[in-house]
Amino acid sequence: MKSEIKPAVTVSGVTKSFGSGDSRTVALKGTDFGTDEGELHLVVGPSGCGKTTLLSVVAGTLKWDAGDIEVLGTKLNGLSPAEITAFRGRHIGFIFQQFNLIPTLSCVENVSVPLLLNGAKRAAAEKKAAELLALVGLADKGRKRPTELSGGQQQRVAIARALSHEPRLLICDEPTSALDSETGHQIMDLLSTAARSPGRCVIIVTHDPRIYGYADRITAMEDGRLKHVLSGDPLKQFVQSHR
């Protein structure tokens, strides 16, 4: 089976700075970045090199200063803030280091949020949410509140939430760094399964060498710029060297 490889995200020459005057920090200094559909793509690099900032501009949650960003065939440059919000709601799923589940809502309700935001009815959304919780192995935890679960269980709820509206792009910022190694692997199994479904793509920012083995591609950043991209054999060697 051969399928044409389509780009999922293309970032070219993007700059982004915070603050002004003396306190000005340039987080992205003309960054290029690209990933294709069907890929699980890791972004690595030292702290403060701009990984989170890159994720934020790709997700359209942060305005950038210059350069072009195209996500799933749509140029973000041309969209109004409201259009970007709507685009994000439809096509992008998020997973955060701190899970960011709403503590006063049950797990089912948390997972149903993206569906509701996309206009689903409450009953349908909760039914789908329950199915997704079952998929991540939490069928019996639907009525529980997130705070009653372990960190790994909470992150699985977050994955169910991120997948609930079947987004094509999954954006994860250090999804395993708050978890132990064992749980981290469970989470990565779920994410790499998600990445393999057709037309989908997963981008993960990480500091966690334990998960390098899951990557189809690794982009290394340094000081607001792309340093190098690894795939194929060099990637295998890189992974070996971090065992």
Partner: peptide, 16 residues
């Protein structure tokens, strides 16, 4: 605010 931010990231408009 954090949760409202998450909702916003997930596509909730300011109006919603």
């Amino acid at each position: 605010l954090r949760h409202l931010g998450a909702l916003k990231a997930m596509g909730a408009s300011t109006w919603t």
